[in-house]
C-alpha cells in the first residue's frame, strides 16, 4: 500500500519509456551524492489502463520468455507493464538518485489474483524505504496493479545507487550488504540457456527497457562493463516461465536476487529445483562458478 504520508499524482496514461530514458539520462548527470538521500513522497497513479490492445505485445513476450500462450498475464509481463510508471518516479527532478547506473539488486513480486488480457487496470508506483548498503544506498521501487479496486499484483524492485549516503545508519542484517556471502557451489543443472549477443535487444523490444548497457557493447562500456549485459529481469522472467503455470498456480510469489551480471553472449547453466512449498532456481555461468542469480517461485 502507498505510505499514508505520500501524495498521489494522477496521470492520464502510462508514460512511454523512450522519453523517460532521455530525461533520465540527462538527469543522471546532475544527480550526485550530496548529503543524506531523501525520496519524493509521491505516488503515481494511472486508472483505467486498457489491456485489450496488448495481445500482440503479450504474444511477443510469451514467445521470447517461453511462457505458454495464455490470456493470463505473467508476473514478468505485469512488471514490464508497470515499469514505465516506476521509471517516471525515478526521473523526477526531486528523485535524488541517477536513473542510469543504478544496479538492480533484487525483486520480489506477488500475484494475488490472475490478471487477464482485456481487463482494465489501475497501476500505481512509488519509491520508498531508502536505506544503507555497503556501496551506497538501496531503494525500493514499488509497483502495484489493481483490477476492480482489488490488489492483483505487487512488485518491489530494489536498486543500488553507488556512493550515496542513507539517512541514519546502514540497515543491519541484510545478507547482500555486509560484503560476505555464504560459500556457494553450483548444483547440478537442469537447463542451459545459450544467450546470444542480441538477447538484450530482444528483451528491450518487449520490455521497452532500452537502457544502453543491455543493448550495445559501447553503452555497456560507458558503465564499466566489457560487453552488453542481459537484463536481470529477462533471466528471472525466463526462470519463472520455466517453472510454468502448473507449478506456480494462479497466485504466487516470485523473487530474484542478482549477483554478477550476465555478459552477452553467454551460456548460463540453470537449476530449477523443488524447495519448501515452491521451487528455487539458480543461474550461473556454464562451467564456471560465476553466480548470476537465484530466486524462488512459491504458490500463495
Amino acid at each position: 500500500m502507498v505510505p499514508a504520508s505520500y501524495g498521489v499524482t494522477e496521470l492520464d496514461r502510462l508514460p512511454r519509456l523512450g522519453g523517460l530514458f532521455a530525461k533520465g539520462a540527462a538527469g543522471s548527470v546532475t544527480k550526485r551524492p550530496k548529503g543524506a538521500v531523501r525520496l519524493p513522497e509521491v505516488s503515481y497513479r494511472v486508472a483505467g489502463v486498457d489491456t485489450s490492445g496488448e495481445a500482440a505485445h503479450l504474444a511477443a513476450y510469451q514467445d521470447l520468455l517461453g511462457e505458454p500462450a495464455s490470456d493470463v498475464l505473467p508476473a514478468g509481463f505485469l512488471h514490464v507493464l508497470a515499469f514505465p510508471l516506476a521509471t517516471a518516479v525515478m526521473v523526477r527532478p526531486d528523485f535524488p538518485l541517477p536513473l542510469l547506473g543504478m544496479v538492480h539488486l533484487r525483486n520480489v513480486a506477488r500475484v494475488l489474483r490472475p490478471v487477464r488480457l482485456g481487463e482494465a487496470l489501475e497501476v500505481r508506483a512509488w519509491a520508498q524505504d531508502v536505506r544503507g548498503h555497503r556501496r551506497g544506498v538501496q531503494v525500493d521501487l514499488v509497483a502495484e496493479v489493481l483490477v476492480g479496486g482489488e490488489l492483483a499484483y505487487q512488485g518491489v524492485s530494489t536498486y543500488l545507487a553507488k556512493g550515496f549516503t542513507a539517512p541514519g545508519a546502514a540497515a543491519p542484517g541484510e545478507p547482500a550488504d555486509d560484503g560476505t556471502r555464504p560459500e556457494w557451489t553450483a548444483p547440478l543443472p537442469t537447463a542451459r540457456w545459450t544467450l546470444g549477443g542480441g538477447t538484450g535487444r530482444a528483451y528491450g523490444a518487449v520490455s521497452g527497457d532500452l537502457n544502453p548497457i543491455h543493448t550495445s557493447a559501447l553503452g555497456a562500456k560507458a558503465f564499466g562493463f566489457p560487453r552488453a549485459i542481459a537484463h536481470g529481469m529477462y533471466t528471472a522472467a525466463r526462470a519463472l516461465a520455466e517453472v510454468g503455470p502448473a507449478l506456480r498456480g494462479d497466485r504466487y510469489e516470485w523473487t530474484v536476487e542478482f549477483f554478477r551480471p550476465v555478459l552477452l553472449p553467454s551460456t548460463v547453466d540453470v537449476a530449477i529445483r523443488p524447495a519448501g512449498d515452491g521451487l528455487v532456481y539458480d543461474g550461473w555461468r556454464s562451467g564456471k562458478g560465476t553466480r548470476h542469480l537465484t530466486g524462488t517461485v512459491t504458490p500463495l
Binding site: 517461453g66 547440478l188 543443472p189 537442469t190 537447463a191 542451459r192 540457456w193 545459450t194 520455466e242
Partner: peptide, 17 residues
C-alpha cells in the same frame, strides 16, 4: 526443447547425481 540441454548432457547430470 524446454531445457536446451542435449540428451547426452542430461544423462551426464543424472550420471553425476
Amino acid at each position: 526443447p524446454r531445457t536446451h540441454l542435449s540428451m547426452g548432457e542430461h544423462q551426464a547430470i543424472t550420471t553425476a547425481a
